[in-house]
């Protein structure tokens, strides 16, 4: 460090002398280059003044004493800047540390989400889930039971970022600890609600839609806990219908019960589940309408389910200037024709 400082001192003296002799643009350019180096080497402002003073003493010893004294004075003044500069440095280090920790947490959170989507012959499934920042408040889950029934959950945890992520781990573990055999959607939400109600702060809540697809009879059973409605697409009439299951959000009332709904799924029909980040997509002209979303899905409906959700995400992301305001999750389950 001491070495590099004396090197800097030497260099500063050299470029200052050259500038005073030639007084041209090149000299100023050297000064700019030098200031970059100063920052790189974390040299404080008062040390720069001290470099200047040393150079003057060396090359212009005949200057009036007052000039030297004035630089001593300036040096004192710059001390404050130096302190602020060092504080800034230490904040930057701390910020880097925090960022690293959040990155670790974010990659841990990724492990909460299913690594692969279970496949059954009857269904074509597409999933996309993109957080607005590093940590997500959206959660989804797939299970396949011994009868090849596919259980699918989509949940939105209030808020974003770290608190939401912590809450998500609770949902994940609660779902993992549910009995192995297939649970009816209503009963599953009853169970989860009890866990959530006991374990969240008073202003936290979770919305969830849980559905179970039975490929033997092609029925989709579902229940909702205050979750943003999805869509049901009828292949034969080429129409969308709102897929909504009324129910109170999780975590409010201990003894809430959830009604179960069901749909008979015909070949080509599909179920769209989403988080409110999809429908609350906000552009310069205000919020998008739900019709805008069905228009987009319709536009890509000839594609495989995964390509539909990817394309819809891309189009909506584009509408928002590639800056998501909320976590975005979209799931499509289609009965193959």
């Amino acid at each position: 460090m001491a070495d590099s400082f004396s090197l800097m001192q030497e260099q500063y003296t050299k470029i200052l002398k050259k500038y005073l002799e030639e007084k041209n643009e090149t000299g100023l350019y050297h000064a700019q280059q030098f200031s970059k180096k100063v920052l790189e080497n974390q040299i404080s402002p008062e040390e720069v003044v001290s470099l200047h003073l040393d150079a003057l003493e060396k090359y212009f010893p005949d200057l009036p004493q007052g000039v030297f004294d004035s630089f001593e004075f300036l040096l004192e003044v710059m001390m404050g800047y130096g302190m602020a500069y060092r504080e800034h440095q230490s904040l930057r280090d701390k910020q880097k540390e925090l960022e690293t920790e959040i990155n670790v947490a974010a990659s841990m959170q990724q492990t909460f989400l299913p690594k692969e989507i279970p496949s059954v012959d009857a269904l074509d499934v597409g999933v996309i889930s993109v957080p607005a920042s590093k940590m997500s408040g959206d959660y989804y889950h797939f299970i396949k039971d011994d009868n090849d029934c596919i259980g699918v959950a989509i949940a939105d945890i209030i808020g974003k970022g770290v608190p939401a992520a912590l809450c998500m781990s609770m949902i994940k573990y609660a779902m993992d600890s549910l009995p192995e055999q297939r649970l009816q959607p209503g009963a599953l939400l009853d169970n989860l609600n009890r866990v959530v109600e006991q374990n969240v702060a008073s202003n936290m809540f979770i919305t969830m839609m849980y559905g179970s697809y039975d490929p033997r009879v092609h029925h989709f059973y579902y229940s909702g806990a205050g979750h943003e409605p999805g869509f049901y697409y009828h292949y034969d009439t080429d129409t969308f219908e709102e897929l909504y299951a009324k129910g109170l959000v999780l975590g409010i009332k201990r003894d809430t019960t959830f009604r179960e709904y069901h749909k008979k799924v015909e070949p080509g029909d599909f179920i769209v589940l989403l988080s409110d980040g999809v429908t609350e997509c906000r552009t310069d002209d205000g919020f998008i309408e739900r019709e805008e979303l069905t228009r987009l899905i319709r536009k890509y409906k000839h594609l495989p389910a995964q390509e539909i959700v990817d394309n819809v995400f891309y189009q909506l992301e584009k509408l928002q200037g590639f800056q998501l305001r909320d976590d975005f999750s979209l799931i499509i389950l289609r009965r193959k024709v």
Partner: peptide
């Protein structure tokens, strides 16, 4: 938004 909703739930 949902955070705002949370405030009302807390209040309730």
């Amino acid at each position: 938004d949902s955070t705002g909703l949370g405030i009302f739930i807390g209040a309730l």
